[in-house]
Design a protein around this nucleic acid. Structure first.
Lengths: 149, 149
DNA sequence: GGCAACCAGTCTTAAAATGAAACTTGCTGC
DNA sequence: GCAGCAAGTTTCATTTTAAGACTGGTTGCC
């Protein structure tokens, strides 16, 4: 793409996040990281992404503080990419995305992987937006206000 | 990007969703749609996206059943792009993304737009992954199982 | 009705990102 | 020591994207 001449620091949180992980690979890297993938080669073969692209994405995610590089835990002198606390906190995003897809992107008879509670083997509860008191809230009951400070 | 030679129908829900809305614009289009934007020109000027790209994205979102085209509500003979039920159900995804960004993508002093409950003016409650009984669940307490049918 | 302005795209072109695979270094295993 | 692996980097052809000119139908207004 040509150099996008857009706001480098949008005040909309959604826009800022999309700037960071709004590409074909970053979110899948994060998903794999939640699954325990840590090594360059494992991300590469698991995702089928070009090495050069993976290099850029990992670098971007590290710079963004979502992943961090650390020495390999298996004794070798290679390195690993591990989710930081900031990266771990993307869990709700990944779960929301997954739940939406499970409901809307598969035919009834179509097989798909599923995220379950390890303890019980049951799928997670549905994530739903709530108001300040924990009551379910619909899109029409919300609005975006300019800025906060 | 060169023609990505990847699985056209991955069994991972996250992957399938990323194939659909994992680009710099689709999610922002959906966000604007939640904000009431409906016309081609309004999406275009609001996002600053190239017209040709917007055309492709809108077409894709319509084909995916996230938006639908309908005659303009203002009496003109133009058309509008409106969220379908499937599109509306992306609300939790957008909210989760927004909440993550509000917490992690802004400096403490930095202004950002905010999503609030229209009735009370208060920000929404935090979305959190829960188990089948509504109890908070952490990433480490979950795992992905192959397929379901 | 006539005409300038507008809407929603399409077309063109140059810059940037991607995919694929070869190439490079520094480990590892034996 | 040496064959092979890990993690990148480089190269090159292809695909997208950005930016903006261009087009056909619609609207506003006199």
């Amino acid at each position: 793409m040509a150099k996008p001449h857009i706001d480098p620091a949008p005040t909309c949180p959604v826009a800022r996040t999309v700037d960071l992980i709004g590409d074909r690979w970053s979110l899948l890297i994060v998903r794999d990281a939640f699954d325990g993938v840590r090594r360059f080669g494992d991300f590469q073969s698991g995702l089928g992404v070009a090495r050069s692209v993976l290099t850029h994405r990992l670098k971007g995610l590290v710079e963004a503080g979502i992943l961090e590089v650390r020495p390999a835990s298996d004794g070798t002198s290679y390195q690993e990419y591990v989710l930081t606390a900031k990266g771990e906190s993307l869990f709700p995003v990944v779960v929301a995305l997954r739940q939406w897809a499970e409901q809307h992107m598969f035919e009834p008879h179509e097989a798909h992987s599923q995220l379950v509670d390890t303890a019980t083997g049951q799928p997670l509860g549905l994530m739903r937006p709530i108001d300040a008191h924990g009551q379910l809230i619909a899109p029409e009951q919300t609005r975006v206000i300019k800025k906060t400070l």
